[in-house]
Design a binder for these strands. Structure first.
Lengths: 160, 160
DNA sequence: GATAATTGATCAGTATGCTGATTATCAGTA
DNA sequence: TACTGATAATCAGCATACTGATCAATTATC
């Protein structure tokens, strides 16, 4: 029987734990209380103002039911505004606030730094290769989780 | 600004989501209701009968407060027995039950299969390299999370 | 042997992440 | 127009993960 500790699923869980811990530590050191998930949402909304929650979920590969709570907390912190859409009364349009924009800009250096820390055991070439393999594996497995990445088509992106 | 979707932290989160989904799907297809975390705990206890919860946490890199709930649920399912230790009345000794052993043996092929599915986008060489890089990065970052791996020393292992 | 420091387990609280259901709304069709 | 199906958001419930605290028991120190 293979040692469970040496299975890819287990290794990934451990690296994910390290990645989250490093992210939070770097963000806190920079004076921000933001989780990786909250940062990703904030960043995506900043680049796509006015999107609804389902589109946001697809952009960053979140589960749709998880989004509600994440957005709740960002609204609570004053970093996002959530308003009913006039085009579709089921949907909520998400906008980043002034403070959200300042937070995003302020925390980004810490986020970049965190990526280096979590990969500190790898050389530059190894980091590139690691990310290439991650991208490749994720692309092949995208549809296997309930929260696949959904690229916004050119149609949706320009118009709406 | 770098696309958040292309940062290692984000890529790892997505791969972890896929890995968990694949694991659960394969386990369910084989007739078992077991999470990756529960499998890891069961497996570790099976190979180290009588260990306490802190040692278990170190063996598989869990947070000590998470272990309580995981063990609770495995005891609930009848796969584990948890008894107070006579050597240290603070500690609980964990034993795998007959049914736990049957479950472990029965589900293991599905667990092995899951590892292949989650890496289906990679060639055999790429899988090896991916795991090598994961191991290397984790080793370097082990102490950065609250749940580092703690190998059982020869001393502790033989005795008890 | 008394005291201090440490340790094993648990708990309260918070944040992802999932399954499956519900509600309101929208879109297509007979 | 009435009906059907699909969709956006939310909810209840469950399972990881973490922070920080508490309690009981053990170990170390004086």
């Amino acid at each position: 029987m293979r040692d469970n500790n040496d299975m890819p699923g287990h290794l990934v869980r451990r690296f994910q734990q390290i990645a989250v811990a490093v992210f939070r530590a770097e963000a806190e050191a920079a004076g921000y209380d933001l989780t990786p998930v909250q940062y990703a949402a904030l960043s995506a909304i900043g680049m796509n103002p006015g999107i609804d929650q389902v589109t946001l979920a697809g952009l960053i590969a979140y589960d749709r039911t998880t989004i509600t709570g994440v957005v709740d907390r960002l609204v609570q912190k004053g970093l996002l505004a959530r308003n009913p859409s006039r085009k579709d009364r089921r949907a909520r349009e998400l906008q980043i606030t002034e403070e959200g924009m300042r937070t995003l800009q302020g925390v980004t250096p810490a986020v970049e730094a965190a990526q280096g820390v979590m990969l500190r055991g790898l050389t530059e070439e190894e980091r590139e290769e690691f990310m290439r393999l991650l991208r490749k594996a994720i692309t092949a497995g995208n549809e296997l989780s309930r929260a696949p990445l959904r690229e916004v088509s050119a149609d949706e992106a320009k118009g709406s």
